[in-house]
Design a protein around this nucleic acid. Sequence first.
DNA 1: TCAATAGTGTCTATTAGACAGTATACC
DNA 2: GGTATACTGTCTAATAGACACTATTGA
Lengths: 299, 299
Amino acid sequence: MSNKPIHDRNGMTEQQFLQSYDAAIYARPSLTVDMLIFTVMDKEQENYRKLPEKSLQLLMIRRGEHPFLGQWALPGGFVSIHESIDDAAHRELKSETNIDNIYMEQLYTWGDVERDPRTRVISCSYMALVDRTSLNVQAGDDADDAKWFEVTYRVLQEKRTRLAEGYEIEKLIELRLFHPVETLSATVKITETAVGRTAKRTRSVVQSEGIAFDHAQMIVYAIERLRNKIEYTDIAFHLMPPLFTLSDLQQVYEVILGKELLAAAFRRKIADMVSETNEYTKDAGHRPSKLYRFRNFDL
Amino acid sequence: MSNKPIHDRNGMTEQQFLQSYDAAIYARPSLTVDMLIFTVMDKEQENYRKLPEKSLQLLMIRRGEHPFLGQWALPGGFVSIHESIDDAAHRELKSETNIDNIYMEQLYTWGDVERDPRTRVISCSYMALVDRTSLNVQAGDDADDAKWFEVTYRVLQEKRTRLAEGYEIEKLIELRLFHPVETLSATVKITETAVGRTAKRTRSVVQSEGIAFDHAQMIVYAIERLRNKIEYTDIAFHLMPPLFTLSDLQQVYEVILGKELLAAAFRRKIADMVSETNEYTKDAGHRPSKLYRFRNFDL
DNA sequence: TCAATAGTGTCTATTAGACAGTATACC
DNA sequence: GGTATACTGTCTAATAGACACTATTGA
């Protein structure tokens, strides 16, 4: 923090160095952001008495250009040289869903050499969570060919092998994306090798039906992160409307975790994250339910 | 998955498109990897009876060039256009510590526009954990000016503010890096804002004494990840030699978590991650301790 | 009335925290 | 013998899982 200029081995000060620095001497990769925009929607329900089931939905875009022309990809785009990666992610989100100010977090940066056939592309993936009621533009019908797909994640196979000084776990994950007129699918292999104090985790897309690039991997990664984080953070509330019932909230947990929960234990667990209101659901075909809101306030 | 070539709006097949694709039309950022290489070492102990305390150590490199000439930075370097980010991280690790095959994971990608004064640089940070006994090259004396620093992380201040529809938490983290002849320090501010269903988390380096670029932020981020992961994964064993005592293991947990643990509870918790051997420590100045190893095997 | 959900009470099993008490080397 | 650590037993508190039971609406 001294003000005396420091000279390097060529006798240059920092200012002189920066002025003469040629940024173009190394070949550089392209950088994109890819957005995993999730929401939860109600499914159709014919029985007026039953509650509608919920489904986890992911926004995808049909590619109108090579490569992977006609296949579906995550929304995203190039990061400009004058904007931060976070800003680029916000910009993409805004341009796809027309919403600002929602939950977003960086997930992982994908940098395999051959992941884009055009040129070397690094992709930084972000996850965003949207409450469906705040989606005024109902993406899915617009000219952009953006559609919400229902996502399911299923472990097809889990194989454990004992190795000399450790083990290997190989998991096959089946991913399915549903839409009234289209179904996409992929199988992703996750290999976890642990030998001695070493540990490696590799992913690869084994088979892909209609999902462009390595985006099936990104989706699997995002779902795993979402599943993890819902257990120990309040992340799920970003998927809820301002007022919701505890049954709704439980359904959201269930659809993300892919398993049923017991109501009593669930209510205990989330009790101090919500505050009750005096309002109730109406016309439910059964006992009405108290409405709650997220307890962001109160400390 | 059909074999019929698809044509885009210009009538081109995918192959034709790729051949004519000009990768150079957009300005591209540079991409580097930065390595957070941690290990745990014993501190000196004058009393022959007392156990040596442990300290968390981080490898840093003194910059021999502008910018930040003379300051200390994380080891790292540019990702070549022909290698994956993971490969670049492995290469950097190998060149700094001369070890292969240790635990490594990607942490976060830093992409603010002004983070490097030379040009636009994106940095992908990786954390690696090394057992000190496998470090044959005792980095710290070599010409490269690489040194292990003891790291301490301390929350200086935590301020909670109630906002209209949410809250803001502002934390000041004090980071200190110790070495017999040099002490570095920095203060990092983490701001967490939650309003309605929005949530944002921003970091910034408030003050930095001898730590180059935004690397203080990266270190803070890595320590937080390490603290989190040690609670629910095996990650700590990557810092242990092949044989260790349970007290050693507990000390490693304590130095990372920054708090004391109760021996009885700790032993219960890690019981099924270790297996005992028939060997004991010797010349301890007190009751000898049984040696354990990591239970990678046995399922 | 009854189908279906809303919501609560309570028993049990498991886990974490606290702490006392015993064991055992080496100087 | 005394110091310092190694290791175990047990009581308590907190939390998660299971499940039965009561409450309440609209058709």
